[in-house]
Structures are given as C-alpha cells and as structure tokens.
C-alpha cells in the first residue's frame, strides 16, 4: 500500500542545532500513527516540516503519491492537512468562534457577503458550538468568550475541535492531551477513534505510553532528529518503546527499515 503521506531525507537546522537529521516518515491511509521520542528529539520539527509551518532545508514530501512543497500552513490546510500545534496557535484576545474559523471565515450569503464582505457570525458560532459539543470536552457557556479566559485544557479542546472539524486528509496532533484532565483526555482519545472511523489517518505525538499503546496502529520512534524504527504496539511492550526512544536499547535491525 502507498503511504498517504511520505517524507524522505528531511533536514532542518536551527543555527547549530540539527532538529531533523535526514528523517524519513510514512503515514498509511486510515491508520493512527503515534510518534514518540524524548524531549528535543525533533518530533515537533518533523510535523512542522510536513505541515508547512517550517520549510525543511533538505528532503522531500509526498501526499497521496504527489510531491508537495508547502511554504505555509495555509498550503497544507488547503490540501486537507490539519494540525494542532503544541503551542496551540490561537489568538488569546479573540473569541472561540473567531479562532476556530481563523483564516477560513464564512461570509453571509448574498450581497452582504459578496459586496460588504460581512462575516456570518451566527453560522460560525453555531458550527463552533456544535463541534465543541460533539467533542463534549468542556462546557463553554459563551462561544464568544475570549480564548485567554479559558483554562489550558479548554484551550487544547478548542484546538483539537478545530482540527477535527476541518481536517479531510490528515490530522496531526502534537501532544494534544498534555494539558488535559483524565476525562478530557479520554474524550480526545474517543475523538481520535472517531476520526479514524471516518477513514482519516492521524499522527499523534504523545508522551503518554498507555494512550499511545491503546490507540496507535503503528508507532514511529523518533530519536536524535530521525526515525529510529517503527514498531507494532501489539508485538512490543511499553518498556521496549521507552528503551528504544531513550537509547537504552537498540531495536532489532529488521525494525529499522519498517
């Protein structure tokens, strides 16, 4: 089977730091791929390079077999790749609805939208409320409340809802449950399964091994800026995975080219 998203030889340097060192990456259609690795291993850099948020110094990316060169996150979004960045990428002073529709606002039908460029606030608010309810992540009384008035978990929920609502080909989640409580994390995991059942593949970066082993179909172990190996969660234990990602153990040779 052809990977839906494939990268070869990605390199990204920040000054003297090499965040990505000839890194390869494969995402199969319909799968949940977990990416694990120590802090600073380059996981966020990897997903930024494939979602257009940074332009890699070297290397190539293919989407559905087509070579793509994203120069901004907008390019990736237009191709149906939706990302929840670790920093969440929200404008604190703007409302939840404003943030969910940032960069893809809906305009009123007819002359008010075409001529006056007027936003259809009512519809954006309705959709935003619906998406948040679907997620059941939080009670937000007021969809017009500024994002800075939300708790960390609520903000993360809004960011995940935004990605789930708009992603059509690939959804990338960079540590989506880091600030969430037990119940909220569970909802995000359910949401991930939900998205998968719609046939959309997901890249999940997480430090939470139980979560990773519960939902992932394959696990990409990232170490020192590149893919160390890809393991099957059913064939490996959590301690194997942790040993590989910390360098305490080396994976068997046949895993390295999975």
């Amino acid at each position: 089977m052809e990977p839906i998203l494939k990268a070869r030889g990605l390199v990204k340097r920040y000054g003297r730091v090499t965040a990505l060192d000839h890194c390869d990456f494969d995402l199969m259609p319909g799968e949940i791929l977990a990416v694990i690795g120590d802090n600073g291993a380059g996981k966020s850099s990897l997903i930024k390079a494939i979602s257009g948020a940074v332009i890699p110094d070297e290397g190539e990316v293919w989407l559905e077999g087509r070579k793509v060169q994203f120069t901004s996150p907008i390019d990736a979004r237009e191709e149906g790749i939706e990302t929840v960045y670790q920093t969440l990428a929200m404008s604190p002073a703007l409302s939840i609805a404003d943030n969910m529709f940032m960069g893809r606002e809906l305009r009123k039908p007819g002359w008010r939208g075409n001529l006056l460029r007027q936003l259809d606030r009512a519809r954006m608010e309705e959709i935003a409320r619906e998406k948040l309810n679907e997620l059941g992540l939080m009670t937000i009384q007021n969809i017009n409340q500024a994002v800075e008035t939300l708790s960390g978990g609520q903000r993360q929920g809004v960011a995940v809802a935004r990605a789930a609502a708009f992603g059509s080909k690939v959804i990338i989640l960079d540590e989506p449950t880091a600030a969430l409580g037990v119940k909220e994390s569970r909802r995000v995991l359910e949401l991930i399964q939900d998205v998968k059942s719609r046939g959309i593949p997901i890249i999940l970066i997480s430090h939470n091994m139980p979560h990773v082993f519960e939902v992932a179909d394959r696990i990409h172990v990232h170490r020192l800026g590149k893919r160390l190996c890809v393991i099957d969660p059913k064939a490996h234990s959590m301690s194997d995975a942790v040993a590989y990602m910390t360098g305490a153990a080396e994976p068997a040779a046949e895993l390295a080219e999975a």
């Binding site: 907008i74 960045y85 990428a89 703007l94 893809r104 006056l116 007027q118 936003l119």
Partner: peptide, 25 residues
Amino acid sequence: RHTAWGRHVYAVGDDPDAAELSGVK
C-alpha cells in the same frame, strides 16, 4: 468587526506566530 480582514488585523497584533500557523497571511 465584521470582515475577515478585520479579524486578521487583531490576530496579527495579538500573536503573529499563532496567526500564521492558523492560516492568516
């Protein structure tokens, strides 16, 4: 208040990196 451009002006002033990542030029 009522156009996308106006919302983008606020977003850029608020946090330009976040605005860029969420699709504002």
